Structures are given as structure tokens and as C-alpha cells.
Simulated scan of single mutants.
Amino acid sequence: MIKKYDSKKMQQLVLKIYEAYGFSAANSEKIAHTLIYTDMHGIESHGVQRMAMYDKFIQNGKIKINSIPEIVKETNVSAVIDAHFGIGQLNGIYSMELAIKKAKEHGIGIVTTKKSGHYGIAGFYANMAAEKGLIGMSSTNSRPGMVPTNSTQPFIGTNPIGFAMPAHPHNFILDFATTTVPQGKIEVYRKLEKDLPAFWVAKDGVNPIHDHTNNQDLDLLRVPKSNVGLTPLGGISELTGGHKGFGLGIIVEIFTSILSQGDVSSENDGSNPEIGPCQSFIAIDPAIFGNKEAIITRFSDYLQEIRELPAVPGHTIYVHGDKEQISYLDAKENGIKVDDATISEIKSIATRLGVSFEEYLS
């Protein structure tokens, strides 16, 4: 069952949990903000639902609490960061802030970060740039999840791409996995005891898995070199464009692991503690192309033209960011949606760390 919870109270609880792990108050606030931001924008797969996974990584040392990101190569417009396995949200904020600083000074900033951790949604970091009046992009590789076209074995990560640009009445934000759905969405459906409604998961490269109770196969999504994986964006066939999602996943590898000389998805199978995700952060100042306000206004007008196109009866035309804004306004008024299984996980973590769950959520 899904219930709604006060976002401010939930954020305070999450903050206290991360303080109990040993993160500073300032860093705990940043981590909590990214998680609640995600849930408030309707992306339940990557919000507080991810806390159980982070808890596991903190306990087994995969996430190192006191790590500090280090610049290992830098130019006026670029940098390579070694994150030393700190938590992904802090690495992402540090890296995008550096990209933004370079874009403000030189028109563009590109930062690629290695040995990081799962950083949540790519769109959060892209929107950091948009909130500063810049175009933002971010992507990350991950553990192998995607089955390349005509393969029977996962090799590429879900490798999402986030893009954001300032617009009126709210920013344009596009955030998508290069698989049909991210791993987290499978986890949410299993928690809610719902069957998978489309060809999201492939066995032996061609056979769909829909039954959420098929634990024997679905559990293999986390097993290296198994015969179960996520379909590329576009599906398993070139006829439906699956090779395009496959290709986009490779592009993400270029901007994350290849340019940083870090670890590619296929190396990140969880067996080696010295291997971790790589990420990229790009900020571009529209002013290098002309009048910034004129560019943003033209883009905003363009998006509005799309919204006002004739719509299929019973449907509304949304551009990217519209649904997230609707979700944000609803969550601000009525609370964020969290399923019972996730609440149980959070309560267990809080209890173990000596944080009073009931003080924040009843």
C-alpha cells in the first residue's frame, strides 16, 4: 500500500538518519534534500526507496562516509574528479557546482567523476545548472543491467541521461534511463506486488518476464553475467529502435567512465570494492550564443506551442518537466507517496541507528 507523508518531516527523519551514520549535519541535509526532491517530483524509484540500498553499501564499506572528492586533472573548462567512494549525492553536488563555476567563468564546464556511488536521479544535477540560468546535463554509468541488442547477457548499465534548461513557467527537465525502465522501477513494482506491464525485463535476450512473483529470474537482475537483464530503450529489436537505447548507453559510458579513465559498467559487478560508478556533469551558459533572456523566452514560447497542439481525446500534452512540477506542487500540499515496504525499511534503519522514527512519522 502507498501512503502520503509530510515531506518536511520525512526530510528531517532522513537527515537524522544520515547524521547517525556519521555524516556532518551539512552533508546530511544535502543527502536528505536530494532524496526528498526526487520523491516530491514523483520519481519514487530513486527517492527514499533507495535508502535500504545505501544502508547496505554504508555497512559493507562500499560508501565511505568521510571521503572527500579530489580534483586529479583540471583545465579552465574541465575537470576529472576522484570521488574516493563517497556517497554519490555529495559527489554529484560537488561536481556539478564545479561545472557551474566553470560555465559562469568560461561559458562551459564539463566535469567527469570516477569512483563515485549511486547518485540518485540525473535530472537533479542537470536542474542544479538550470536553477543558475544555465543548460545542464548529467549522466552516470552503473552496474551491468542493459542487455545489448542481440545479446543474452547484461553488459551496459541503465546509464541515465539528465538534461535541463531554464524556461517559463518552470524549467524543462528530461531525465531517462537508456534502458526501457530503471532498475529501481522494477524494485517498486515488486514491493507493490504488481506484475511488470510491458517488456521491461528479458530472459535469454528474447523472453519477457512479467510475473512479479518470479523471484528466481528477477533476482538475477543483480547477479553478474546472468541471462536476465533490462531491455534497452526501444526494446530488444532493431525494428522498434532498441539499438538506439543501446547506443545511448555507450555514449553515457564515453562521458562518464571513458573520459575519466574510470570503471565501465561491465567491470562494476559488485565483487571488487575498488570499482565504482562514474558520472558526468555539464553546464553551458546560453549567453555564449547570444542574449540569454531572449533564448530562454524563445524556448519557453516553443514549449508552450507544443502544449497547445491538438491533443488525442481524453489526453493532455505534457512537455518534460510538466508532470514533475504537478507532482511537486501536490507533494508540497499533500505529502510524498511512499509504499509500506519502504517505510518498514526506513523504520528498521532508524531503529538500528538509535533515531526515533515516531518523532517524525507516526
Rank of each mutant, 00 (worst) to 15 (best):
M1E: 10
D6F: 10
M10T: 03
Q11D: 05
I17C: 08
A20T: 02
G22Y: 06
N27Q: 14
S28A: 15
A32C: 09
L35C: 08
D39I: 09
M40N: 14
I43R: 05
H46P: 05
I65S: 05
E70Y: 00
I71Q: 05
K73F: 10
V80L: 04
D82H: 04
H84W: 00
F85R: 08
I87L: 14
G92Q: 03
Y94L: 02
A99D: 01
K104D: 05
K104L: 12
I110E: 06
A122P: 11
F124W: 13
A126W: 00
M137Q: 10
M137I: 14
M137E: 04
S138L: 06
S139K: 00
T140P: 09
P148T: 05
P148H: 08
N150E: 12
P160G: 09
G162E: 01
F163K: 06
A177Y: 04
V181E: 07
I186S: 03
V188Q: 12
R190M: 15
K191I: 03
L192K: 12
D195F: 09
A198T: 14
F199Y: 14
V206S: 12
N214T: 08
N215E: 14
R222N: 15
T231V: 13
S237D: 13
E238M: 13
L239R: 14
G241D: 06
G247Y: 02
F255G: 02
I258V: 15
S260H: 02
V264K: 02
S265T: 13
E267I: 07
P286E: 03
A294N: 14
I295Q: 05
D301R: 09
Y302F: 15
E305F: 11
I306V: 13
R307G: 04
L309E: 10
I317W: 04
G321H: 03
G321K: 02
I336S: 03
A341C: 13
S344H: 13
I349E: 03
T351P: 00
E359Y: 12
Y360L: 05
